[in-house]
Amino acid sequence: MAEQRIPLAKAINAALEAALSADPKVLLMGEDIGPLGGVFRVTADLATKFGEDRVVDTPLAESGIVGTAIGLALRGYRPVCEIQFDGFIFPAFDQITTQLAKLHARSRGRLTVPVVIRVPYGGGIGAVEHHSESPEALFAHTAGLRVVSPANPADAFVMLQEAIACPDPVLFFEPKGQYWAKGDVDLSAGPYATGQSVATQFDTLNTAKVVREGTDVTLIGYGPTVVTALKVAQSAAAEGTSIEVIDLRAISPIDFPTLIESVQKTGRCVVVHEAPVFFGAGAEIAARLTQECFYHLEAPVARVGGFHTPYPPAKIEHDYLPGLERVMDAIDSVLAY
């Protein structure tokens, strides 16, 4: 087992390299992803290794990137697009929601459009406007798209490979605040690294993962909030509260059986994401869990997340983001019932 301790950004780079090496149809497209390696250096050195026809610096136009990626996918290629920042995905929103999401259905299954759209998202990095947002719910609301977000390097490495191998379009949200957080990664895992010619299993695109077992409260997060959730669980344990932490990984679909099993055990649930609470993924989770676990719940499902405001200026962003105190407060509130 080729296990290495590497940052999340490097794990993504390694997954891209594995896919580019294994499948000549895989292409990377995006702004500044060539010699620069992307503004976060996630694609560092890949243009040198695979050439500018496979690691393509595109004109600065997001709709153009996704629109031409759709055309390339129709021709049999597997484009992996990088959107430079979360807030810049909107020029491509039309192509993603009216075209990419619907072509498989429109063609009655004849056409597949295996396009991956990588989006660095989330805040906490002191950035300017449009560089810290969490727009995942907008895409989860659209049938035909898969929406996933890794929380650690090991998952990032496998999930991205599965996303590229998957015949469905995948929105791949990368927690940019975690790019430099290190973790152990098995570099022999995943469909491309293991040399599978055709992947048929896409476990990490469909399943949540219990990352810490507990008995009193289920705490659900994904992407950047999993680290927060684990910290909360650790400090709560010191106070005698046992928190089960679930890393959602997939936001479309949501692995409800795993969530239901946990909440039927704990009877209490808190969902935490950076995206605004209003119409966020937590609203869907709370509604379903209320329906499926009604007689097991000891308290209403609580949600912690961003406010119904534009993402605030960096000096006050930590008051907007769901930090330890607000998550602890929510834990206390569901335990108070």
Binding site: G71, L72, L74, R75, Y77, D94, Q95, T98
Partner: peptide, 18 residues
Amino acid sequence: VISAHTLHATGYAMGIQR
């Protein structure tokens, strides 16, 4: 959706090139 396919055509042509 008006004009969305002009990009698909262009991407498709880029595929033919490749």
